[in-house]
Simulated assay, not measured.
Amino acid sequence: MSQLEIFKVALDEEIGQHSYGSEPAELYEPIRYLMDLQGKRLRPMLAVLSTYLFTDHWQQVLKPAHAVEVFHNFTLMHDDIMDHAPLRRGMPTVHEKWNENTAILSGDVMLVQAYELFLGLSPDILPQVLKRFNKTASEVCEGQQLDMNFEKMREVSIADYINMIRLKTSVLLGFSMELGGWAGRAEQPVVEALYAAGENMGLGFQIKDDLLDVYGDPGKFGKQIGGDILSDKKTFLYLKALELADTAQKEELTSLFSDSEPDSALKVKRVTGIYNALGIKEIAEEEVKKYFEKAIGTIRELSAPDDRKRVLLSFVNQLWAREK
């Protein structure tokens, strides 16, 4: 078994054997359902990989890494309600399988459970971890609010968008690596470098997600293709297209994104056609490359054994090349 496989098995065991509660069943079954869907688990994996850079005792970070995954899934459960998303990881979302009230309440319990799992940390680092986690959790909510605001705003800049995804997605990846650094007793400058690597990785990861939403394989992506277009989300692809579009293309794009009752399939087809005409896919791929290369460069410069950095870099490259 490779080192990555060892870490994955350990995380699966840690998450799989945890009991979130039993009664009332309607409260806890949705939590088990969502956690059992087993997403990429990249955030807890980044925490473990970052700890492993500095110590053989990486098992100590499993519970707090689990906490990050529970928090992440809590945000997904609530985000899916706000986005009216029908699918998550190829399966019905919690609010579709049960109802919105259940999804809200089960998500609330998940947030409480995340804090309980952090208590597995050593007492000397717990206060600073919780302080940083609280800031990160607030930033994730800020990012989600900005994302919803952007749906109603006529003008959003690419800089605005990058800041939004930094908050909504990147800060939690940065925190995951930061958490691993603390658990591995890394020096503060190293912990800060880990956070920066995670933040850049998160920016690349989210723009890759924007790409997959339009150009992904429906059988692999696990979410509705064109979902961002149907939700009128101002993604990197949309904003770059507006920037490069001629007058007719710009008018068509803005009209399509303001139509309250569009033909769904036709809307996705027409928007994708404009993207294709402007070479948006290739531009976005270059943007993804830029952020992942920044993250990789930071990791390579870390004061840690090369063989352990290679394990982390292998995982980063898998995220870059992902199809789902």
Rank of each mutant, 00 (worst) to 15 (best):
residue 6 I to C: 15
residue 8 K to D: 01
residue 9 V to G: 02
residue 10 A to V: 06
residue 15 I to W: 04
residue 15 I to S: 02
residue 17 Q to T: 07
residue 30 P to S: 06
residue 33 Y to C: 07
residue 35 M to L: 14
residue 37 L to E: 07
residue 45 M to H: 03
residue 47 A to R: 03
residue 53 L to K: 04
residue 58 W to P: 15
residue 64 P to L: 06
residue 64 P to Y: 05
residue 65 A to R: 00
residue 70 V to I: 15
residue 92 P to W: 06
residue 94 V to I: 09
residue 96 E to D: 08
residue 105 L to R: 07
residue 106 S to A: 15
residue 107 G to D: 01
residue 117 L to R: 06
residue 121 L to Q: 11
residue 123 P to G: 06
residue 125 I to A: 07
residue 130 L to E: 09
residue 137 A to F: 10
residue 144 Q to K: 11
residue 144 Q to P: 12
residue 152 K to L: 12
residue 155 E to C: 10
residue 156 V to S: 11
residue 159 A to G: 01
residue 165 I to M: 01
residue 167 L to T: 04
residue 168 K to G: 08
residue 170 S to D: 01
residue 176 S to P: 08
residue 178 E to P: 01
residue 185 R to G: 05
residue 199 E to W: 10
residue 206 Q to I: 13
residue 208 K to N: 05
residue 208 K to M: 07
residue 215 Y to T: 14
residue 222 G to F: 05
residue 224 Q to E: 14
residue 226 G to A: 07
residue 231 S to T: 09
residue 234 K to S: 03
residue 236 F to T: 00
residue 241 A to C: 07
residue 243 E to L: 11
residue 243 E to T: 12
residue 253 L to K: 11
residue 256 L to T: 10
residue 258 S to N: 10
residue 261 E to N: 15
residue 265 A to H: 09
residue 265 A to N: 10
residue 268 V to N: 09
residue 270 R to A: 06
residue 272 T to R: 13
residue 275 Y to A: 04
residue 275 Y to H: 05
residue 276 N to K: 11
residue 279 G to W: 05
residue 284 A to R: 03
residue 285 E to F: 12
residue 288 V to P: 05
residue 297 G to P: 06
residue 298 T to E: 03
residue 299 I to V: 14
residue 309 K to S: 13
residue 318 Q to F: 10
residue 319 L to V: 11
residue 321 A to D: 15
residue 321 A to P: 12
